[in-house]
């Protein structure tokens, strides 16, 4: 029971990631692949943000009157994973944009976004 409470966040991310990964490699529809890709990347974001959490801590904005005294790091959550995930969010948005553009181009070329139908046309 304690094990579940201690780790459930990480297990949820693994589960989400499996869903996304499955969609990316197995789904036939290109748009569904992209949806899987988004789930996959969101799972990673969940993983990183979970690393940053601390019990009983608040958002990492230092109160001004704390300026003079010592600041206890345990009062503020770890800011680094949040910064890293800001980057990862930006990357996933950019990848999504390029992927959508590619799908539009593929759709114009073949008239479909189903992978098997496209491959049939090529042969």
């Amino acid at each position: 029971m304690e094990l579940i409470l201690a780790k459930y966040n990480y297990w949820i991310y693994v589960f989400l990631m499996m869903i996304g990964f499955y969609a990316m490699i197995v789904k036939n529809n290109l748009v569904k692949k992209i949806i899987g890709m988004s789930i996959f990347q969101t799972a990673i974001i969940l993983f990183y943000v979970s690393i940053g959490a601390k019990k009983g801590a608040t958002i990492p904005i230092i109160e001004h009157h704390a300026h003079s005294g010592a600041i206890d790091p345990a009062h503020y959550i770890n800011p680094l994973p949040h910064v890293l995930m800001l980057t990862a969010i930006v990357v996933s948005v950019s990848t999504l944009g390029v992927a959508l553009a590619l799908i539009l181009k593929i759709y114009h070329q073949y008239g479909t976004v189903e992978e098997d139908e496209i491959l049939e046309q090529i042969q």
């Binding site: 990316m24 890709m37 070329q109």
Partner: peptide, 13 residues
Amino acid sequence: ALSGFNYLIMGTI
């Protein structure tokens, strides 16, 4: 375009 898309999926993975 299609090979670019496949590369995108594999590269993202």
